[in-house]
Design a protein around this nucleic acid. Structure first.
Lengths: 334, 334
DNA sequence: TTGAAAGCGTTACCAT
DNA sequence: ATGGTAACGCTTTCAA
């Protein structure tokens, strides 16, 4: 049996109230008793039971985090930010992988509820109605890190996708590229896919260039990028550059090029979005928009902690700065 | 204020004992009451408070996991296994990133202790004395997933490094390579680095080949691999193949080759160990020993759950099967 | 089958 | 400054 506050109190010859006071430094205790108690705590190796403590204080110091898949490097990086900053505020993470399934999200939400988490961060392509209803009933500080749908009514943290894509496409144009293709998922209404796609179109139109070279993918994966490249580079189109809505797509495209003997960047310039670790280790190194995933996680949890502390934050959306990393996969067109 | 068991009891006109019984299905309850109670639970949306429950049952359904860095893909994969299988048994993970610092490990251990975790999985290069002492005092089911030091007194899950390396080096020999180099960290006493290095030496000696082409690295990182390649391929040595103790090292080597115009596999065959995701996306695709990280995590937590259930497991070490993936980075020597 | 009550390890209020 | 005690929400005897 573990050492409890009673054991300490008895051995130190004081009441449990006194022990509690020295442990929490919550009320003045005379120096002599304080020292005595601390000695006994040390001697017995007493560690307060957080479960009991939570029950009375109603603070679990737990934050629920639901992600699609921790195996994806950008997810892992967000998690690092969440975890690290959480720890700074004494908060722990209860991590759940939904694998994109709504039922899993629902189950985990219920679990997190029962475990008395104080806040919620959800990373998901979209917020299904059922999930949303549950979260609202839940009534906890909540950050929605959408990978696609825009929901400006919830707290979120992201970069400004519109500006980022516009800048990258403009950079490609500065490199003398005229025929630039876009690879990304279907631009549904009020989605990031739409924002990115529209930014691409605008950047092209603003320069009087055609913006019809678009390949819609099923997902943001490397395999999808590989397939998209196959479709794009079938001989009918002659893009000299391609903007991919994610690094994974871009890597798939580059792999297709490698396998087909298409040289990057000599024959085709490729750009990505995300700046995942692999982007700078793959050869040629990928030119990409760096999304500060770690910071996104860090800011998300900090917002939750702030709300918990009553230091309300008003704006729902927070935009973090991004950077364009110009690396080897793009080249100036003669 | 959340709905409690009392609210349910009052509304259903029964005692809290009865409510508890139907919730846990722990003792017979008459059908009428059962239905009534369930209706009220549904109506009120009652969810048992796990904190209160933990306090009395002394089961937190929490397992503490300390890893160096969740950002590394093999770590993320272990975590996936741990998380997924844990959930199957209703266990949640309390995740802590130590970044390899002993003091962080110590702090987290204390935290996990206070949070009443029921088991412990630690991933670390070595088990420092202080950490070990703490864990032993802790007295919980514990799995030590060492990235280097061997500690056969604790539960562990891994592949058989000796056999794996021997087989890979043998494969290289079958490809007619005679001058094979080894890149890895310093082979300290009772470490995996030693086991791997010794297996390399044995495989070479068994074939009457020289085994002196060894580069010791500071770490297992890509950068370390890059530097090691620089040292190895300086013109004095003429290896035709190199075995790297990790995929990251191998990728660093391949990048150095790319930058220097050394062709892989035509000029140099490269092999890795780990089969991280990048191994099959990098070009040329990396020949490597596949370590089932997901399974290692999965088996680890399953062992803990088994111990918790009293279904003791005797052997400390569990060896999982590995595979050698023969891909593009190796080529037969003329 | 049901309910009352003790108890889990704390904190926090109320006396003293 | 210190101690006694109710309360947190639940499970689990023990009686009935």
């Amino acid at each position: 049996m573990a050492i409890t506050i009673k054991d300490v109190a008895k051995k130190a010859g004081v009441s449990i109230s006194t022990v509690s006071r020295v442990v929490n430094d919550s009320k003045p205790v005379s120096p002599e008793l304080k020292i005595k108690v601390m000695e006994v705590i040390e001697e017995l190796g007493y560690r307060p039971n957080e479960v009991a403590r939570s029950l009375v204080t109603k603070k679990s110091y737990l934050i629920g985090v639901i992600v699609p898949d921790i195996g994806q490097s950008h997810v892992a990086n967000m998690l690092r930010g969440i975890e690290e900053v959480g720890k700074m505020y004494n908060y722990d993470i209860l991590l759940c992988s939904s694998y994109g399934e709504m039922n899993a999200e629902l189950n985990y939400l219920q679990l997190l509820n029962r475990k008395q988490v104080e806040g919620l961060i959800i990373l998901s392509a979209k917020l299904e109605k059922e999930v949303e209803a549950y979260i609202n009933a839940f009534n906890l500080p909540f950050v929605f890190l959408s990978t696609n749908d825009y929901r400006e009514e919830y707290r979120s943290v992201d970069i400004d996708n519109k500006i980022a894509v516009y800048e990258m496409v403009t950079y490609l144009q500065q490199l003398n590229h005229k025929e630039i293709a876009y690879i990304g998922t279907k631009p549904g209404k009020k989605t990031k896919a739409e924002v990115k796609h529209d930014a691409f179109v605008k950047a092209m139109k603003d320069s009087g260039l055609p913006s019809n070279l678009v390949v819609e993918t099923e997902s943001m994966s490397k395999d999808a990028g590989y397939e998209a490249a196959k479709e794009l580079l079938n001989g009918r189109n002659h893009p000299t550059a391609v903007f991919c809505a994610s690094d994974e797509l871009a890597i798939g495209v580059m792999n297709y090029c490698h396998d087909q003997g298409i040289r990057v960047p000599e024959d085709l310039s490729v750009t990505g979005m995300g700046d995942i670790e692999m982007a700078s280790y793959i050869r040629p190194k990928l030119t990409t928009i760096s999304i500060p995933y770690y910071d996104i996680g860090a800011v998300s949890i900090r917002r939750i902690v702030k709300v918990l502390k009553g230091e309300e934050q008003t704006e729902a959306e927070i935009k973090l700065p991004f950077q364009i990393h110009k690396r080897e996969s793009c080249k100036k067109r003669a």
